[in-house]
């Protein structure tokens, strides 16, 4: 195979570098209202504690599920589509929640367990006004962790038809978790969602979010630990 080799004689005539084009300033062509009501004018924490009817959420979530159901041919495809719908929300929530950390103690999660605690605590409290119910590490695989919610709020008014018993609509929340992990620099192979409430009289809707980190993430973590960090 011919490999292009720079010939010194040709380079003498023309400069050997390409000038970097001047930076183009970002210019929005959007129109903004004149009375300072744009998202840039409003306080980012303004809606932090605002509440809305759970029924309204249920109608919207139902609309989302119906839409993706109509475009899917299998239960796993519905879950995949719900996951993708949640994914961008996770990316944005990471930024928003870090911004909202108390100013003096704000740190980014830089370890797997820190990140998972951030999701289990901070993210859950922001979305559902309470922490998740448990956080566990797999005993057999070192890249698998489980976040457990006994009664996912998003599933409140959802009943699953028999022929789709495998479906768990909290896959939407699984997507949010996946987006947040990826955005934080902890890539995952997948965040899968499993119903674990069968036979559980106390928590029939119990749901496990299984987070599987990429091997490289686990290796990095071990390298940091080994170097005493």
């Amino acid at each position: 195979m011919a490999v292009p080799v720079a010939s010194p004689s040709a380079e003498e005539k023309t400069p050997s570098y390409v000038a970097i084009p001047p930076a183009k300033p970002f210019q929005s062509t959007l129109r903004y209202s004149s009375n300072r009501k744009t998202i840039y004018d409003r306080n980012l924490n303004r809606t932090k504690t605002t509440e809305i009817s759970l029924a309204s959420f249920a109608y919207l979530f139902n609309t989302l599920i119906t839409y993706h159901h109509s475009k899917s041919s299998s239960v796993s495809e519905i879950e995949h589509r719900l996951n993708r719908a949640g994914y961008p929300i996770g990316i944005k929530m990471l930024d928003l929640l870090l911004y909202r950390q108390p100013p003096r103690s704000a740190t980014r999660p830089t370890r797997i367990v820190e990140l998972l605690q951030f999701i289990h605590g901070t993210l859950w409290r922001a979305l559902f006004s309470r922490s998740a119910d448990a956080l566990e590490k797999s005993t057999t695989k070192n890249n698998e962790y489980m976040i457990i919610d006994n009664e996912p709020l998003v599933n409140t008014y959802i009943s699953i038809p028999k022929e789709m018993s495998q479906l768990n609509c909290a896959a939407f929340v699984g997507g949010i978790i996946e987006g947040m992990c990826d955005a934080a620099g902890f890539s995952t192979d997948a965040v899968s969602v499993h119903s674990a409430g069968e036979g559980d009289e106390m928590w029939p809707g119990k749901t496990i979010f299984l987070v599987r980190f990429k091997e490289s993430v686990v290796e990095r973590e071990e390298a940091i630990k080994a170097s005493g960090g």
Binding site: T47, K48, T49, T50, E51, I52, S53, L54, A55, S56, F57, L60, F61, L64, I89, K92, M93, A126, L127, F128, S129, L153, T156, F172
Partner: peptide, 11 residues
């Protein structure tokens, strides 16, 4: 019954 408004906004 209520839920955080941002969840609805984002959904």
């Amino acid at each position: 019954d209520k839920i955080n408004a941002e969840v609805v906004t984002l959904t």
